[in-house]
Amino acid sequence: MSTNQSITIAVLGTGLIGAPVARNLHKQGFRVHAWNRTAAKAKALVADGILAFDSPADALRGADIIMTVLKDGPSIQEALQAAAPALNKGVIWLQLSTVGIESIETLSALAEQHGLVFYDAPVQGTRQPAELAQLIILASGPLEQRAAAQPVFDAIGKRTLWVSEQTGASSRLKLALNNWAFALTHGLAESLALAKGLGVDPALVVDVITGGPMDSGYFQAKAAAILAENYTTSFSIVNAVKDARLVVDAAAQARVQVDAAQAGLQRFERALEAGHGDKDMAASYLA
């Protein structure tokens, strides 16, 4: 039996990121328990050899490591509080969701209350990197259990950046990174929309940028999606609205002026109000 096969990981949240994360953990030999508020999403993993449970408490019972990949801080707090009877002191909790600076402090306090070893570890990457185990993990937390957490991160990502021993440092970094991703998304969407509005083929914008200093894999992927009118979700407008609000709120607390971020949030909100919530955030183009 490999070392991984002796470790049980409970994955709470099996959406666009959580489901491939659970599959990749199983592929690397870990025993994986799964729970999701929409039970069908967890049960869809049974065919991959993953055990699905009807409640967070059942999923956590007997787990050595907890991994949360739910939508937001309140959802995670609710799930962990519901599972309180199954929480054992010393269990490692890897918190992968983007929750913002207030919720990460709440979750850290919850972990301390139950004697859990807490790691603030949001991930950089969307559906495809998650499927390919190419996520970048931004991890913060105590030194003593990092050796136990690292093989888990290695199973789902291509790189782990240990940011700090201080809880919350990773969540702060993630907000700055998300702000950049949103700026790229809106800049591209508006540039293509402007070209079209001016009577120019938007594909020519892509043609000029390709191979130059402004080019990137992200630019090419989102541009291709927009030009093909293919908004298959890697990161939804709904989640973009949630995370953009976290950015704006954090900036206000830090007294940092973020004009572009505020405008970007409004653009995502318009896309949401127009009925594009389940589409990829490249649907900023449709706002």
Rank of each mutant, 00 (worst) to 15 (best):
E105T: 15
L107N: 07
L107S: 04
S108T: 12
E112R: 15
E112F: 08
E112L: 12
G115M: 10
L116G: 14
L116V: 14
V117C: 14
D120H: 00
P122M: 01
P122G: 02
Q124R: 13
Q124H: 12
A130H: 10
A130T: 09
Q134Y: 00
L135I: 05
L135C: 03
I137M: 05
L138E: 02
S140F: 03
S140C: 09
P142A: 15
L143E: 08
E144V: 07
Q145H: 10
A149R: 03
P151G: 02
V152C: 02
D154Y: 03
A155R: 03
I156V: 11
I156S: 03
G157W: 00
K158P: 00
K158Y: 00
T160A: 04
T160Q: 06
L161Y: 13
W162C: 05
V163M: 05
E165M: 05
T167Y: 06
G168Y: 09
A169R: 07
S170D: 03
L173P: 11
K174C: 11
K174S: 13
K174Y: 11
A176D: 09
A181L: 15
A181Y: 14
F182S: 09
F182Y: 15
A183Y: 01
A183Q: 02
L188P: 00
A189P: 05
S191T: 11
L192V: 01
L192F: 04
L194R: 06
L194W: 04
A195N: 05
K196G: 13
L198Y: 07
D201W: 15
V205L: 10
V205H: 11
D207C: 11
V208W: 04
I209F: 12
T210Y: 02
G211K: 02
G212W: 03
G212N: 09
D215E: 00
G217W: 03
G217T: 02
Y218F: 10
Y218D: 05
A221H: 13
A224K: 13
A228K: 14
Y231K: 03
F235I: 10
F235G: 09
I237R: 05
I237L: 06
V238R: 15
